[in-house]
């Protein structure tokens, strides 16, 4: 979440300047304009100004929220162009979906899935899929933030659906321990059955799975709850209010950052890996010690001595 916040933050510029200060600076500059560092300094300044201007212009082009973007025809057009290249082979040229000849979904229709869905699927790298499979896997995203905005804007323009949430909806800043406790209760009631008690993930039928929840941004957790990607049910705002969702995110962040008080966590997978450790490490080392004690006796040392002597 912090990453996206940083990316979304517009570069700040000084709003006002003091004439006296400017005069003093220009005096100082003119007195040093024949310095051998002057030319590179001017070049650097020019590059910085040009880059800054581009950044300003670029930021002005990208609206802050997804709702606003749906009205931005340029963005939708850009998104459509990207969609036709990267998505339409499975989802259809108009995102209407492509059925297979057995009437299964080759790629589902994206009409009405909303911008939040696109932001989650593309932002976590699940879409575009690297290869067809039971489930799209998380991987480094293929599109950058601006392109994801454009794709989301295009898909959102096809029909109404959940919008990308505002950062204040999923930001956990300022939440106290009570929220974490509350979020833990919601987490155990709604999430652990598939994602495991520590968010380490769990198996679902036929090769599907609930992914692990470490390293997922606040925004993406919120969007997943909102849109129910892949096997996940939708937790609409009527089921889990935005505050509940935020508390769950706070709990997930808390447990992810919490140290493993007991030592090596063995993947936080529960008794299976613990049993493995009991056998491999416990019995393994103790039998090793037994072999050592059993073979290194007075008799064997005597035998070794005799062998060495002969």
């Amino acid at each position: 979440m912090r990453l996206t916040q940083k990316l979304r933050r517009r570069p700040s510029r000084p709003g006002r300047s003091d004439a006296g200060v400017a005069r003093r600076i220009s005096d100082r500059l003119s007195s040093r304009r024949r310095s051998r560092f002057a030319a590179p300094a001017v070049l650097m300044l020019g590059l910085l100004l040009a880059g800054g201007a581009y950044a300003v212009a670029n930021a002005a082009l990208v609206p802050g929220t997804a709702q606003a973007s749906t009205t931005d025809e340029d963005l939708v057009a850009q998104g459509r162009a990207l969609f036709l290249v990267g998505c339409s082979s499975c989802h259809g040229k108009n995102a209407e979906g492509i059925p297979t000849n057995k009437d299964n979904n080759y790629g589902p229709s994206l009409v009405g899935v909303g911008a939040a869905s696109v932001d989650f699927q593309v932002g976590t790298g699940r879409m575009p899929m690297s290869n067809p499979g039971t489930q799209a896997q998380r991987k480094p995203p293929v599109y950058d933030d601006q392109e994801i905005e454009a794709l989301a804007a295009y898909v959102a323009s096809l029909g109404p659906g959940p919008a990308v949430p505002d950062s204040e909806q999923y930001s956990t800043e300022g939440l106290d321990n009570e929220s974490v406790v509350r979020g833990g209760e919601f987490f155990r009631t709604n999430c652990t059955a598939c994602h495991n008690f520590a968010g380490a993930g769990g198996a679902l039928p036929r090769g599907r799975y609930a992914p692990k929840l470490t390293g997922v941004s606040n925004k993406h957790i919120y969007e997943a709850l909102l849109t129910g990607p892949q096997q996940m049910p939708v937790f609409s705002d009527a089921v889990l209010t935005p505050e509940d969702k935020r508390d769950i995110i706070a709990y997930i962040n808390y447990t992810n950052e919490m140290p493993d008080q007991g030592g090596f966590s063995l993947g936080r997978l529960g008794p299976v890996t613990e049993g493995l450790a009991a056998w491999l490490i416990g019995i393994g080392s103790l039998v090793g010690f037994a072999v050592w004690i059993g073979t290194a006796s007075t008799r064997t040392t005597k035998k070794q001595k005799k062998e060495a002597a002969s």
Partner: peptide, 13 residues
């Protein structure tokens, strides 16, 4: 809590 369960609920080995 009888209403809750976690993935990976196994007994000891």
């Amino acid at each position: 809590n009888p209403a809750e369960v976690t993935a990976g609920s196994q007994p000891d080995w």
